[in-house]
Design a protein around this nucleic acid. Structure first.
Lengths: 353, 353
DNA sequence: TGTTAGCACTCAAAACTTTCGAGTGCTAAC
DNA sequence: GTTAGCACTCGAAAGTTTTGAGTGCTAACA
């Protein structure tokens, strides 16, 4: 059992018992309950004394006189920390969670869904963040008289196309010339290389085709966006209703909006990716005020990081009430990232054959 | 003023007043209120008699003895019908709702957002449903050693690409051969033409490249999906909390799920597109049980159809409480579709230059 | 000195009661 | 046909009582 500067073994045991009990029941827990709940064989009076100490130390609090105690954020934090140290692998039914799917997008949506279903909380999953953002390939082709398609491959995995309408058909020769121009300037260019000056130079050289070029640029800019801006998939947002202490409608509403808008979730993801190297498991827990998103101050967030063979990293997170089943959530999350890793490794092998 | 088989002018006037008043206040409306509210100059007692008749006819109902009356679905329906007949153009602030954007997807997301913001209800917008679903163009190119990209253009507006990893690089010649094979079989093919038999034949001809072909097929299948399966953009779902008679958490939750899952919304869209040709305005209103989606039985739905120059049609809808500001919603919706139409027309001209 | 039994006290939640008033239906008179 | 008047209904709001879980303190005990 871990030691703590201010907590002796007995207090630790009692605190844990309080938090565990509160997680289970959701009711403030009283001294008598703990007296029976633990194997300490202490009377309720003794527990009361200890509880008074724990309250003074800021780990638990009384919602009102004559009620039991509930954990403060610090109390939750203590509980979670010691839980993570113990690392007792709570076995959750494993495997077969994910169907085999081919497209990353579909897979990730499924991950979010499965996780939401298993935990009954709101979940989010981000696509992996690619690091290599060079333009690898760019090609213009004629679909038919008056319509062109530009294909741009950015980095290792993002391909983007842009349909372009033109007033007249181009000859094969013209298309070829165009492709040479594009490749000369853009192939291998890193995205920040593409600036206004370069665009101007290209336009000059393109002469009468400047207009088409303009549209291709649009396509490129979008491809950049897609490569940079993380896709975020959410699921189970309606679960928020189930745990949000109903009554405070405006907070619930704000939280739902955060999920709909998704922009704010980026903050959360940046935060998680920052810490991902340090710890092995890559699992992080934010309790209450620790959350980097304002609207989640009343929630707890558990996140995990997964990694693709190429090194791209993504985040999986669940957002629930502070009073959540941390053990189950953590182990479910672990399983899921393991499964993901397995799928990616298989995928890689398949590609190499 | 319209005539009705069972309602004389006075009853019509009273019914309308009841509905209008209830929409405003949300409170059951009593006889005294109506007596003052209308210009009929009748005492509350007379109104009471009329109200008793209207109740018997099923247009209004008393939530409990000693309360005022509220409209039934039939009452709402009557009100909405006569409102739509009158066609009084309630002027809502017009124009400048939509920023100019280039990509359809971005535009439609914005439409959903703007509408949600203006009405404070939940909204959904679908991408236009294209009718022409032939494969128009298909091309394979080599990105680099070991990676190919296949581009498939379906119909007029959907381009799809698929990255394909292969174990060895292909020569230019090989790529060329491949393209000839693909185009021979697939170009101009309507999507239902592509069947197992065709795939088998192609695979035989492809010989050692069968594996690559397999992946291209995957890409095609996805392109089909994307062309067929409507993208649905939703916004303002958190507004549901604001009007859902709070207390019935499970219904609210179910409704939120419907919006998250989106699959069920398809039913609604199919329904709206069916009726779109008949009426000029293309605006339809579903009240309560009229809704084709189970979870919306307690809501009203107002939908409008917009049309792209090529004839593709899409749906815009708002989902709110039965007690919604129909006039405002209808005119906002009209404005928005008008604006959309304008944008598309401009777009078309731009392309033709 | 740490533990415990006992007791007075607190206070939210639940259950019950009272009051209030908006609204009704009916009847009789205009 | 319309209206004034009146007894009646019943939900909502406000107030009251009861209940019981839980506390803190004190005094006694090992």
């Amino acid at each position: 059992m871990q030691q703590n500067d201010e907590l002796d073994d007995r207090k630790v045991k009692i605190l844990k018992a309080i938090v565990a009990n509160y997680l289970e029941t959701g009711e403030p827990v009283g001294s008598r309950t703990i007296s029976k709940y633990t194997d300490l064989n202490l009377s309720s009076a003794t527990i009361r004394n200890e509880m008074a100490d724990l309250e003074e130390l800021g780990y638990i609090i009384q919602p009102h006189t004559s009620a039991g105690r509930i954990p403060t954020d610090a109390g939750y934090r203590f509980y979670v920390d010691s839980m993570m140290q113990e690392k007792e692998e709570t076995e959750v039914e494993k495997g077969a969670l994910l169907e085999r799917v081919d497209r990353l997008e579909v897979l990730l949506k499924q991950v979010a869904k499965v996780l939401a279903y298993n935990t009954q909380y709101a979940t989010m999953v981000t696509a992996p963040k690619y690091l290599n953002k060079q333009i690898k390939f760019i090609q213009l082709s004629q679909v038919d008289e008056g319509q062109l398609v530009a294909v741009i491959v950015v980095g290792d995995n993002v391909a983007k196309n842009q349909l372009i309408k033109v007033s007249r058909g181009l000859s094969n020769e013209e298309v070829l010339k165009f492709n040479i121009l594009l490749n000369t300037f853009l192939q291998g260019a890193s995205l920040q290389d593409i600036n206004l000056e370069m665009m101007q130079t290209m336009k000059r050289q393109a002469g009468e085709y400047a207009e088409i070029l303009e549209k291709i640029f649009e396509g490129i800019i979008e491809a950049i966006h897609q490569a940079e801006e993380l896709e975020i998939y959410t699921s189970g947002t309606s679960n928020i209703l189930k745990y949000s202490e109903l009554g405070d409608l405006s907070k619930t509403s704000a939280l739902l909006e955060t999920f709909e808008d998704k922009k704010e979730l980026n903050q959360l993801i940046d935060e998680t990716l920052k810490f991902t190297d340090e710890e092995g498991s890559g699992i992080q827990i934010y309790i209450g005020d620790e959350a980097p998103v304002q609207n989640m101050k009343d929630c707890s967030i558990v996140t995990a990081t997964y990694e693709m063979p190429e090194g791209a990293k993504g985040t999986i997170g669940i957002i629930g009430p502070k009073r959540m089943d941390y053990k189950k959530v953590v182990s479910t999350l672990k399983n899921l990232t393991d499964e993901l890793d397995a799928i990616f490794r298989k995928e890689e092998k398949r590609g190499e054959e």
